[in-house]
Design a protein around this nucleic acid. Structure first.
Length: 448
RNA sequence: GGCGGCGUGGCCGAGUGGUUUAGGCAAGGGCCUGCAAAGCCCUGUACAGCGGUUCGAUUCCGCUCGCCGCCUCCA
């Protein structure tokens, strides 16, 4: 039974599917106005892992994650690059999925696009206006935060204290009635993309899309809504407020992942400009090293990423690959039940992937020191855990070795059999210089 | 100002009122090897500081110092 820290409650609680054997989750996806950064990498890996784990554990999971393809930043980008907003969002969405593939993040079952749900959003806004929860402001339609009794649930603060710290922009003050109110529909300025609505040409505010898309695809009372911790307030709060005001039962549980921080411990954020490109990282390091690092930290902790940490996880991945190649045949064996039971217990305990990873490394060691069926069962558990449940695919075979290298390896074996160490070492140095790892085993020289 | 979190061995990063070590990386020693590599074994008296509770605290409480998050856009 999965237990997670529920942001709305402030403690770890049982998170069951509302229907036996089924689980529905919605993760707030990217705004496709630029290249993905490390923060995107973390949240996608974290929730991909939860999804995989639940599926692995036998649940039928439906996983929806949106693509925000209309938003101020997209319009701004289009303006500066000379493209249309649609071209911008298409371009960056392509980059997004390409990056997800490289990260080994499986495609969600549903990837709703905001622009495809505008009429549903207009309908929702209409109902909110009608019921008095929303009103016509200076530059759009606004939602009245105080019209929802428990506004501030996810922030775990009453509306009043949230308002006390609110930063109020001058033009906001003119446009809306209260500092915590947020825009549902933005009137279009000349040249901006727009849709029809009863209140005038415009586009939806960010907080509305996830409400109609999550409820539309997963239904009322879907099981889990997640995203980065920075979305808990105001984004998720505002989603909740709208759904609640509309009389819908929204997400039954909320969970949020911690932020990526820079070397100074500061959160990477767009406004600080300290975000690191995920693409660059994936070009430099094995993407699996990033995935492993994400899993070695608890999902709710802030996580530092730098050259040092990635080199460390790269080395760890290499060790796992070595094991994987050596025990490739064990995949067919029945996995050790005790090991899997321990793994499930860790994962169910608020997604304790650091413990799960530690267990995995312990099993690697145990499989190596055990023999026969026992060893194969432990090795098989290693693969179940890392590959099937956590989505970290290990290498089963080495690189393709070209004939010229095979030939020199044979020559080296011959030299070794003649105890011609000088020649054997010369050949080995040559191969190493070309980037190969040379190992001598019972069967002779192995190159990989 | 309000609410919340953190400070762990060279680095990343878990965890816990005491008897058994998180784990990974790096480092040192050893085994294996012709030498290596891979692998295995061993090692490092970590828990910000100061008090308190306790038979005993890194783990609970208080205070101090330092850092960070949210109340703006953000994953």
């Amino acid at each position: 039974m999965l237990r997670l820290f529920d942001t709305a409650l402030g403690y770890v609680t049982a998170v069951e599917g509302s229907q036996a054997g089924k689980f529905s989750m919605y993760v707030c996806g990217p705004t496709v106005s630029g290249e993905p950064h490390l923060g995107h990498g973390r949240f996608t890996v974290v929730w991909d892992v939860l999804r995989r784990y639940l599926g692995w554990a036998g649940m039928e999971v439906r996983f929806a994650s949106n693509v925000t393809d209309i938003e101020d930043k997209i319009i701004a980008k289009a303006r500066s690059s000379g493209e249309t907003p649609e071209q911008v969002s298409r371009r960056y969405e392509a980059v997004w999925w390409e990056t997800m593939d490289r990260l080994g993040v499986a495609r969600p079952d549903d990837t709703p696009h905001a622009t495809a749900w505008v009429s549903e959003m207009v309908d929702l806004i209409g109902r909110l206006v009608e019921s008095g929860h929303a009103y016509l402001g200076g530059d759009g339609v606004y939602f009245s935060a105080e019209s929802v009794g428990d506004y501030g649930l996810l922030a775990r603060q009453p509306l009043e204290s949230l308002r006390a710290g609110a930063r109020i922009e001058a033009n906001d003050a003119a446009a809306k009635r209260s500092a915590m109110d947020f825009v549902l529909w933005k009137f279009a300025k000349p040249g901006e993309p727009s849709w029809h609505s009863p209140w005038g040409e415009g586009r939806p505010g960010w907080h509305t899309e996830c409400v109609v898309m999550s409820l539309g695809l997963l239904g009322d009372g879907f099981d889990l809504h997640t995203g980065g911790l920075d979305l808990s307030f105001p984004h998720h709060e505002n989603e909740r407020a709208q759904a609640t005001a509309d009389g819908r039962v929204f997400a039954r549980h909320w969970a949020h992942n911690g932020m990526i921080v820079d070397e100074g411990g500061e959160k990477m954020s767009k406004s600080l400009g300290n975000t690191l490109s995920l693409l660059e990282l994936l070009d430099t390091y094995d993407p699996r090293a990033f995935r492993l690092q994400v899993l070695q930290a608890h999902y709710r902790s802030p996580m530092a990423v730098g050259a040092g940490t990635l080199e460390a996880s790269s080395a760890a991945v290499e060790r796992l690959d070595n094991f994987s190649r050596e025990f490739a045949g064990a995949r067919a064996a029945t996995a050790d039940e005790d090991a899997l039971a321990k793994f499930r217990a860790f994962m169910d305990d608020d997604l304790d992937t650091p413990k799960a990873i530690a267990l995995g490394f312990d099993l690697v060691k145990a499989a190596r020191s055990a023999t026969g069926v026992e060893s194969a069962g432990l090795a098989s558990a290693v693969f179940e855990i890392f590959e099937s449940a956590l989505g970290l695919e290990l290498r089963r075979e080495g690189k393709v070795v070209p004939p010229s290298v095979v030939e020199r390896a044979a020559q080296r074996d011959e030299a070794r059999s003649k105890r011609d160490w000088a020649r054997a070492d010369a050949l080995r140095n040559e191969l190493i210089a070309e980037g190969w790892t040379v190992e001598d085993g019972p069967g002779g020289t192995t190159v990989r």
